Simulated assay, not measured.
Amino acid sequence: MPNHRDEIRQLIRQRRRQLSQDQQHQSALKLVEQCMQQELFHASQHIALYLSTDGELNTQPLINALWQAGKSVYLPVLHPFSKGHLLFLHYQANTPMTLNKFGISEPKLDQRLIIPTDQLDVICTPLVAFDDSCQRLGMGGGYYDRTLAPWFHTQVGATPIGLAHDCQQVDKIPTEKWDIPLPMIITPSQRFSAS
């Protein structure tokens, strides 16, 4: 197993992309079961998710299940003025969408739909790889690290949860000082807790 962060990213992204459509579909359904069993999801009303790309675990079935449960779902939007930061916008089935500079679908910016991050209950984060101590390796842009920094320092506000395929687990993530371990990571088969 490579120990350099970029090598890990490359290896795990390749592993993730090799999953068949059926494996992806089954994983997405199992993720819904795992998440809906968590007390945190039951107790939360405002939940930020993301739309999957590049072989990531498909979040759409989870979004649908949260809508059916009467929860409000929010998606990240690249901040237009604060480089490297995210805004979260209320997301519904009819929300107008646009592609951001990374080619990822996001809600069309509308100030009326923005929710302050501190009013979210949960922020589900994408990740490339993780280890059993809930260290997360992202794509390298630092968007979620910056978004989660206030929580990391105070443990107050939205609880961050990583979502990943089981195949994205590695033995150990080499960490940098800015890396933020997550309190919980959920895969289709299990839940990992940092504590």
Results as ranks from 00 to 15, higher is better:
40 L>R: 12
70 G>Y: 09
72 S>A: 15
63 I>N: 00
122 V>Y: 00
79 H>Y: 08
35 C>W: 03
110 D>Y: 05
33 E>H: 01
50 Y>R: 00
91 Y>R: 10
53 T>G: 00
63 I>H: 00
120 L>A: 12
195 S>V: 13
174 P>Y: 09
163 L>D: 08
78 L>P: 02
45 Q>L: 05
131 D>A: 10
41 F>C: 05
97 M>F: 07
190 Q>D: 05
132 D>P: 05
98 T>M: 13
28 A>H: 01
32 V>G: 11
117 T>P: 00
115 I>Q: 06
125 T>G: 03
94 N>E: 15
100 N>G: 07
148 L>A: 08
6 D>M: 09
24 Q>F: 01
178 W>Q: 13
150 P>E: 04
185 I>V: 15
31 L>K: 02
177 K>I: 15
91 Y>V: 05
106 E>I: 09
159 T>S: 13
76 P>S: 08
70 G>P: 05
118 D>G: 03
83 K>Q: 06
189 S>M: 03
130 F>V: 00
170 V>K: 10
165 H>K: 06
57 L>E: 07
61 P>K: 08
92 Q>I: 10
57 L>N: 06
30 K>M: 04
90 H>F: 02
56 E>C: 10
50 Y>W: 07
51 L>W: 03
2 P>T: 04
12 I>C: 03
68 Q>W: 02
176 E>K: 15
66 L>K: 05
7 E>T: 10
27 S>C: 04
14 Q>E: 05
114 I>S: 02
106 E>L: 09
119 Q>T: 06
182 L>G: 04
120 L>P: 08
22 D>I: 10
66 L>G: 06
87 L>W: 11
188 P>W: 11
139 M>F: 13
185 I>L: 14
164 A>C: 04
135 Q>V: 08
173 I>S: 04
3 N>G: 02
140 G>K: 13
154 T>S: 15
173 I>Q: 06
75 L>P: 07
101 K>N: 10
24 Q>M: 11
192 F>P: 01
47 I>P: 02
131 D>F: 12
44 S>W: 09
55 G>L: 03
150 P>Y: 08
52 S>E: 07
4 H>Q: 12
132 D>G: 10
104 I>D: 05
26 Q>P: 00
191 R>S: 15
24 Q>V: 02
95 T>S: 10
4 H>S: 01
17 R>N: 05
20 S>H: 06
28 A>C: 00
79 H>Q: 14
103 G>S: 07
135 Q>D: 05
32 V>E: 06
57 L>Y: 01
29 L>Q: 14
101 K>E: 13
28 A>K: 01
101 K>C: 04
147 T>W: 01
143 Y>P: 06
16 R>G: 04
170 V>A: 12
102 F>C: 09
145 D>Q: 13
90 H>E: 09
43 A>Q: 15
139 M>S: 12
43 A>N: 15
118 D>Y: 10
58 N>H: 09
154 T>C: 11
107 P>A: 03
42 H>Y: 03
15 R>P: 00
6 D>N: 12
150 P>F: 01
108 K>A: 14
122 V>N: 01
183 P>M: 13
105 S>R: 15
